[in-house]
Amino acid sequence: MNIFRLCGDMTHLLSVVVLLLKIHTIKSCAGISLKTQELYALVFATRYLDIFTHHVSLYNTVMKIIFLGTSFTIVWYMRHHKVVRQTYDKEQDTFKHYMLIIPCFALALLIKTKFTPLEVLWTFSIYLEAVAIFPQLVLLQRTKNIDNLTGNYVFLLGAYRGLYLLNWIVRYFTEKGYRQWITWISGIVQTALYADFFYYYIKCWRNNEKLHLPS
């Protein structure tokens, strides 16, 4: 495992910590898209089906359990916690799940490495993760006052994807025969979706302004 992969995973973990801090400590999920969080829970549930059948490493297993557990916890908080759920911007978070799920599933049936349930669902999760941030980006654009935790959460998620790109470049040059086109192309698409957000995040940070996106 190279440094970029480790930093990517840690950034991903940190993004979850930031989000849980906002939800659990401040008891608010204002500006957070439940649609995106539900899509992430689906991503992890379909990707980590191999958790008990194929052992990669203790590190991988522990991280998988953490991502599965936290993603479902976040969804539970936003849907059922009596204080947190009242801070959810339901009227603004209008993106439809099926508009992302159906095309991703169709694509996974068409473009995959093997036609087995585990492989198709794994491929589906890769495609879905690439676009799962979409409802969150739409909600951010509609939010007038984006708080620091929400802005930092999305920034950390984008940084995690950027670090994975660097990890793939290192792996390509150091591991013989290492290629994974499905993951690479999806990863590039996923990172590109953050480009606009990054631009405004850095611009506002440099000007010492509160984060706001042009609508």
Partner: peptide
């Protein structure tokens, strides 16, 4: 081992 290698990322 092929499976494990292709799915060794999170």
């Amino acid at each position: 081992t092929m499976f494990v290698r292709r799915h060794d990322e999170l």
